[in-house]
Amino acid sequence: MTDTLADRPAVTSRSRRSRGAVSETLDILRTVGAGLAAAVAIQTVLFQPFTIPSSSMEPGLVIGDYLVVSKFAYGWSRASLPLNPPLPGGRLFGKTAERGDVVVFRLPRDPQATWIKRIIGLPGDRVQMRGGVVYVNDAALARQPLGLTVDHDQPELAVRRYRETQGAHSYVTYDAFQGGEGDDTGVFVVPEGQYFVMGDNRDNSLDSRWPAETGVGLLPAENIVGRAEIVVASWNPGAGLFKPWTWFDVQPGRFFLPID
């Protein structure tokens, strides 16, 4: 059967509507694709969000904190890229971290795991713990006692607070036990291209005081993802950004805090 003249406008109209819908869908897909590409580029090159899963950096960083990490602070390495691809080692436009910087890094024994600690020793430094005090090149880090408080994540535990200073960085540490494991160590000599890192919660942190099999060991510079800059928000444990019903279960006073 052949089409009549009366049928053709309707067919043409339907065809135009169909082409318009396809064009609109393609435009939406292109916009979404461009947005995703921009987000991936920003997270790869500039900044990336992370969440704090443990108490090792208390009291400055606590479980539930969402923070932003600068990925260009020390240049870029394969650790800066998603999935840690098998690229050559080293850093592009590499810069040396400073004592006291808080860094996010890929754990040497498990590069898919990202941890956060504070830089204590630079290449060439000698680091030692004596009676819970940190010594760098035989000089004790300046620290001021601030008295007792309760542990943020374990309110039943009383801890001593100290304000510790390294260069431009001044931050508070926790000391839960005198004579605890890790309070007295041998001397660690930091090789070129590596760092000595520690958690601020000194009795609850597996860090460079422990060998790489159980802690961090000495941290290769190329494993650093970036420098932690700011806490943008904080939720109570169990809540989170991707659980809309918990969005208001926040930790007051922990929004837009610079990281010392």
Results as ranks from 00 to 15, higher is better:
S54Q: 10
D138P: 06
L61F: 09
W210V: 10
G240E: 00
V104Y: 04
V159T: 02
P244A: 07
V232I: 13
G240R: 02
Q178G: 15
F105S: 01
D260H: 06
L26N: 14
G33V: 09
R160L: 12
R202E: 02
I120G: 01
F255D: 11
D200V: 02
A73N: 05
G121M: 00
A41C: 12
R160I: 08
Y74Q: 05
S54G: 11
A113I: 13
A34T: 14
K243E: 15
F242M: 13
D151E: 13
L5Q: 09
F47C: 05
F50Y: 09
G132Y: 04
L92R: 09
E58S: 02
V69S: 03
M198T: 01
D175E: 15
E229Q: 15
A10N: 12
D153C: 08
A73Q: 14
S54H: 04
G167F: 06
R19V: 10
A79K: 00
G217Q: 00
D125N: 09
F177H: 12
G193Q: 01
R163H: 11
G124V: 01
R160V: 06
G33H: 09
T149L: 10
G20M: 10
R143S: 14
G60P: 04
G217H: 01
G147A: 06
G199W: 01
D101S: 11
V225Q: 00
L206F: 14
R78E: 08
T165E: 13
